[in-house]
Simulated scan of single mutants.
Amino acid sequence: MRQIAVPLDVMLEDFDVVIEDDRWNAVDLEDLAHAAAQATLGHLGLDAETAEMTLLACDDTRIAALNEDFRGKARATNVLSWPAEERGAAIPGGDPLPIAPGIDGMLELGDIAMAYETCATEAKAAAKPMNAHVTHLIVHGLLHLLGYDHENDPDAMLMEGLEREILGKMGYDDPYRENGP
């Protein structure tokens, strides 16, 4: 797998990466997050430089508490997202509501959290490089912030198709392709 670096001419000023678990430092999370944001937003015709969002890089204990508080599920998960506003499509498989800049010209997207242990375990089980898996999950979380979902088959097909396209442009393999013969 050959990864193509997305040019980071301008680090996104309003994309905060908060690292609570030092193990994330080995992943170069800030660069991965900015590249994923630029690729995702650019693919959708949005100006990444006007996007406001936060990524919390935490551990399984913290994400399990967040998952219980916000979703009623007392277990760790790989990624959670909290959109700044509801943008879900009106019909299954449809495009989400368009995002409009706020009064300050910025696109308020929301927040994402990722758990190190779960991400590392999944990457190892799938025999994928951690950077590739983490980049996929950031793209996935960003699409959730933009109103995409995978709760039904038409929505999942749309969202997974976008993930494949975005990651493919970044030089990553199809994240949904099964490993093996």
Rank of each mutant, 00 (worst) to 15 (best):
E52C: 12
E52I: 13
T54A: 13
L55C: 05
L55T: 06
L55F: 09
L56T: 08
L56N: 01
L56P: 00
C58T: 15
C58A: 14
D59A: 09
T61Y: 06
I63S: 06
A64E: 02
A65C: 00
L66S: 06
L66Y: 04
L66M: 15
N67F: 01
N67G: 09
D69S: 10
F70S: 10
R71W: 06
G72D: 04
G72Q: 01
R75A: 07
A76H: 03
T77G: 01
T77L: 07
N78G: 09
V79Y: 01
L80N: 09
L80V: 10
S81P: 11
S81G: 05
P83V: 09
P83C: 04
P83M: 00
A84I: 11
E86G: 06
A90T: 11
G93W: 02
G94V: 13
D95I: 15
P96V: 05
P96E: 00
L97V: 15
P98T: 15
I99V: 15
A100K: 14
G102L: 07
G102F: 08
I103E: 14
D104R: 10
G105V: 09
M106K: 14
M106N: 08
M106L: 15
L107S: 03
D111E: 13
I112L: 14
I112W: 03
A113T: 06
A113F: 11
A113D: 01
M114W: 02
A115H: 00
A115G: 11
T118W: 05
C119I: 12
A120G: 02
T121S: 10
K124Q: 11
A125V: 09
A125T: 14
A126M: 14
A126I: 04
A127I: 12
A127Q: 14
A127C: 13
K128N: 12
P129V: 07
P129F: 07
M130N: 14
M130Y: 07
M130D: 11
N131A: 07
N131F: 01
A132D: 01
A132R: 01
A132I: 00
T135K: 01
I138E: 01
I138P: 01
V139H: 02
V139R: 00
G141R: 04
G141N: 02
L143D: 01
L145P: 09
L145W: 06
L145D: 03
L145G: 04
L145I: 08
Y148L: 06
H150Q: 03
N152H: 14
N152T: 15
N152Y: 11
D153C: 04
D153M: 15
P154R: 02
D155E: 05
L158V: 15
M159V: 08
E160P: 06
E160G: 07
E160T: 12
G161M: 06
L162K: 07
L162Y: 08
L162I: 12
E163W: 05
E163M: 13
R164C: 07
E165M: 08
E165T: 13
I166M: 10
G168K: 03
G168V: 06
K169C: 10
K169T: 09
G171H: 03
G171L: 05
D173K: 07
D173S: 09
D173W: 05
D173Y: 04
D174M: 10
R177W: 10
R177E: 12
